[in-house]
Design a protein around this nucleic acid. Structure first.
Lengths: 256, 256
DNA sequence: GAGTTCAGCTGGTCAGACCAGTGGACTAGG
DNA sequence: CCTAGTCCACTGGTCTGACCAGCTGAACTC
């Protein structure tokens, strides 16, 4: 027999396609084609059973996958059926969080990432900010000052609001999401290590001063300086939590 | 009756928690706690039924959700049970692609993010590289030069290898993954728009030249210059795919 | 000892049932 | 006529029990 071996021929690994996956694919395709739009409703599960000619278990598994991906939402008793949701960054954030929480990730890496993201957001904000947005950022500074009179939690909250405001001005939702996620993870990691000294009034005042410098550089339109100050601040604030040998990458992000 | 209204009291909207969600939560918690690690196996579905005291349908819905999130993988007939997977960028990319497809994420945002990530990786690499890693990066340059003699796909592949090598040197897996994901999404988005001119020999040579400059700056340890060149290259290469009004943020990332 | 067979498990799918909740239609009251 | 209340068909969530094809490892054969 002429058994001939084609050169360079490569086969792809094949895994069985399960019924519920085909349902997910069909619905997602209908969505990208525009046949299905956010706000619309899917037929009821029992109706889908007949349309897809599968059992309800299979339909439900497909719906659970779609639901966990933020595509649809099912509510018990709703006679209109599952709802097609508007696109949201929620699931993206979930995945980002998962990525950031994988244990092979050191605190040093996370903080480096935070310095990069925050610096980039500030650099973009320096260029793209409108006068109104500048006012907005200055107002978050005022809120921080006022929060100092309360407790550390209030101050921390105001700090978050500041960084959120800056990230919004960057007009890049990817940056916003990454910033938000990595900040959350970092704060979660050092939450138990945070010393009593960290919430002293002096440190809060110093932090406020640093933030004010950033805003000043943004006002001047000097993105490079603004980003540099911000990264320096983050380093000063977090470096003590990082083992000395791992601080080198962080310093590499400061002195350029 | 002393019906008293607490001031400032806010209630959170509450939605019913379904049984399969609690299972997902428990398994994910076990994962972040480290009680469950990639490579390990989950008990079989029927065993989970008894442990969670629910029906198999419920267990399966939980497993489908975990599976779609890239946490586990079930194989029919496998006596060892569902496998805990190592973290993969697949689901992350899927979510990012989904958002990008519906213009929730513009190409401009993605490219800006790529410029930031790639620039940061190169900046870190300039400081952290060992002599061996420098050689490694230079070898990927050689591979790029050789690939020019083949076709554009080979060149593109070699280009990817270069950026991967740089990202590895940055020793920050967060950067590596983000870089890989956003690069994949960007390439996927412009795949159908890519002009014939893009794979001309002249452009490939020019691209190679730019990459060589980056490596040169890395060798010199000038992270700032290296990152700047890299961002400029990305801008030159991708700007034509971005509508003119949206190029402003990209420029803000170059001239500092 | 090497190869084969086979039984017991696995996950994938199906069918049918029950329940609590939803919301629209219908009805009684203004 | 409009409103307020009742009611019921139908929804999704869960459970039970069943069948099938596939994988594995141990028993079995040569």
């Amino acid at each position: 027999m002429g058994a001939e071996m084609a050169k360079g021929l490569r086969f792809q690994p094949v895994q069985p396609v399960r019924a519920y996956q085909r349902i997910v694919e069909q619905i997602e395709e209908a969505l990208v084609r525009g046949d299905l739009a956010p706000g619309q409703r899917l037929p009821s599960e029992r109706e889908l059973v007949t349309q897809f000619a599968v059992s309800r278990s299979t339909v439900r598994e497909a719906l659970r996958v779609l639901e966990s991906n933020g595509v649809v939402r099912s509510r018990p008793g709703d006679p209109n059926g599952p709802e097609i949701l508007p696109f949201s960054a929620g699931p993206l954030r979930k995945q980002m969080t998962r990525l950031a929480r994988v244990d092979e990730l050191t605190l040093s890496e996370l903080i480096a990432f935070r310095m990069i993201m925050d610096g980039a957001a500030i650099q973009l904000a320096s260029r793209l900010r409108t006068p109104e947005q500048l006012v907005e950022m200055e107002q978050t500074l005022v809120a921080m000052r006022e929060a100092i009179e309360e407790d550390f939690d209030a101050f921390s909250e105001a700090d978050v609001a500041f960084h959120d405001a800056v990230a919004r001005v960057s007009r890049n939702s990817l940056i916003q999401t990454c910033n938000e996620v990595v900040r959350g993870v970092v704060l979660g990691l050092i939450a138990d290590k945070v010393t009593h000294a960290a919430n002293s009034r002096a440190l809060m005042l110093e932090s406020l001063q640093h933030h004010a410098e950033v805003v000043e550089a943004i006002r001047a339109g000097d993105g490079h300086a603004a980003a540099r100050i911000a990264r320096q601040n983050l380093y000063d604030y977090y470096a003590s939590y990082v083992p000395a040998p791992e601080r080198e990458p962080l310093r590499a992000l400061i002195d350029d």
